[in-house]
Design a protein around this nucleic acid. Structure first.
Length: 422
RNA sequence: GGAGAGGUGGCCGAGUCGGCUGAAGGCGGCACCCUGCUAAGGUGUUAUGUGGGAAACUGCAUCGUGGGUUCGAAUCCCACCCUCUCCGCCA
């Protein structure tokens, strides 16, 4: 959510920045609402003040035993008028909030300008693309052949985009999760969490999934609960509505969770394999920090995710997403893409975003600034560290040997308990 | 799921028959003072949000949430949420 005061003070600037995302975005309408809203508030405030004084007078007069009928009647009418104004006030407040909740974050000045992914910029490419003497089988073929993935029966017991991991497959998935968590907690200083996988609508609004992206999520019919699409949601909201000490920042959090996404609108896309599932595992990294440190912390978090790919010796590249491609809540975002031989291209395996105070404002996440001693919105950052299923697929393909066996990356062997899957 | 108790500021805790109570008192925090050091002591200060104002300053709202009664609600009524205790059920 953008700051209404900021909008009020620099509407042209905000419009210009928003239009870097999409030309049809503007804050003009909201400014009009804001103006009406404030006028109404002044009016209502004054009337409430009048009533308050009059009521107190009635109290005093009554004590003196004087007749207050006429005054009471007058105040009663005032009350009617106030009630009326309050209805309008609530309506405008809700309208304004609703509009604010549907406006995306303004892009950072360093976010490349462009309308779609073609304007994204490759920041760096790490590792050699493997040139094998044999043809690498896609993971959706090699997985079932090794008996470690069962796509067909996953579909049978659930529906499409659900997969069963079996035997060494389940073990490898678990090993990857443990490896990720181990690196982030032991080497990178994150604290591990195990949050709820179902969260309420307030929480979903805090990080920006609601109200705009309701169709992307699984919703419980009987209660106000949604399956999390990423651990970002519960982790970022843990301290929602609280005022943290500046000394407690930055806060580094990590969690392994399954993620649930309806993938509405992705019909026909990535229909084979593990790339696009309704349920997938992910280790997420989340930071809460002060505004001053957030650009640095964002870079560092991205490096923390990259470190995993380097340890696994998987070829990858870092992309700076352009204004037309960054997510709704983000002001700046890097994608990490891993080399996937079957597709002959790099595929997203992590997305590391700096949200500025956008999520903090929605979730009411503050810290007490030591210099001013005032509560201020903090900054939130997150990134995948990494998507587990896609890592699994990348290993199956990049570490494939001519005989169809999979050579487990060295760093993973002690977690997996073997060197090879065959 | 059934029965009962309760939800007040960072924390603890008052709040009488509804009326200067945004809220006593204590603890904690901060600032200053005193003291050779420490300990103790003294004084002051210390909620959040949202408006108005160049500023000084100031209005309004908030006592779990939302309604209602009333001239006036932290105090009364209703609904909901949450916490605790006991019973039941259960990985």
């Amino acid at each position: 959510m953008l700051d209404i005061k900021l909008i009020r003070e620099n509407p042209e600037k905000i419009n210009e920045l928003l239009q870097r995302r999409s030309p049809d975005l503007s804050v003009n309408e909201i400014l009009e609402i804001d103006k009406q809203r404030r006028e109404l508030q002044v009016k209502a405030d004054n009337l409430r003040a009048q009533r308050k004084n009059a009521s107190q007078d009635i109290g005093k007069l009554k004590k003196e035993g004087k007749d207050t009928e006429a005054l009471q009647e007058q105040v009663r009418q005032m009350g009617e008028e106030i009630k009326d104004l309050e209805v309008q006030e609530t309506e405008l407040n809700e309208k304004q909030r609703d509009m604010l909740l549907n406006i995306p974050n303004i892009p950072d000045e360093t976010t490349p300008v462009g309308r779609d992914e073609s304007a994204n910029i490759v920041i760096k490419t790490v590792g050699e693309i493997p040139h094998k003497s044999f043809e690498i089988k896609p993971h959706w073929d090699i997985g079932p052949e090794l008996g470690i993935l069962d796509f067909e029966r996953g579909v049978k017991i659930s529906e499409s985009r659900f997969t069963i991991y079996r035997g060494a497959g389940a073990g490898l998935e678990r090993a990857i999760i443990n490896f990720f968590l181990e690196v982030h907690t032991k080497e990178h200083g994150y604290i591990e969490y195990l949050p709820p996988y179902l969260v309420n609508s307030t929480t979903m609004t805090g990080t920006g999934q609601l109200p705009k992206f309701k169709a992307d999520m699984y919703k419980c019919e009987e209660e106000d609960l949604f399956l999390i699409p990423t651990a970002e949601v519960p982790l970022t909201n843990i301290y929602a509505g609280e005022i943290l000490n500046e000394d407690d920042l930055p806060m580094y959090m990590t969690a392994f969770t399954p993620c649930f996404r309806r993938e509405a609108g992705s019909a026909g896309k990535d229909t084979r394999g593990l790339i696009r599932q309704h349920q997938f595992n992910k280790v997420e990294l989340v930071k809460l920090c002060t505004p001053e440190t957030s650009p640095d912390e964002h870079e560092k978090l991205t490096c923390d995710a990259e470190k995993i790919l380097e340890l696994l010796e998987l070829p990858y590249r870092r992309i700076a997403l352009c204004t037309g491609d960054i997510g709704f809540s983000a002001q700046k975002c890097y994608d990490l893409e891993v080399w996937l031989p079957s597709s002959g291209c790099y595929r997203e395996i992590s997305s590391c975003s700096n949200f500025g105070d956008f999520q903090a404002r929605r979730a009411n996440l503050k810290y007490r600034n030591k210099a001013t001693n005032k509560p201020e919105f903090l900054h939130t950052i997150n990134g995948s560290g990494l998507a587990v299923g896609r890592t699994f697929a990348a290993i199956l393909e990049n570490c494939q040997q001519e005989d169809g066996s999979i050579l487990i990356p060295k760093v993973l062997q002690k977690y997996f308990g073997a060197e090879i899957i065959k």
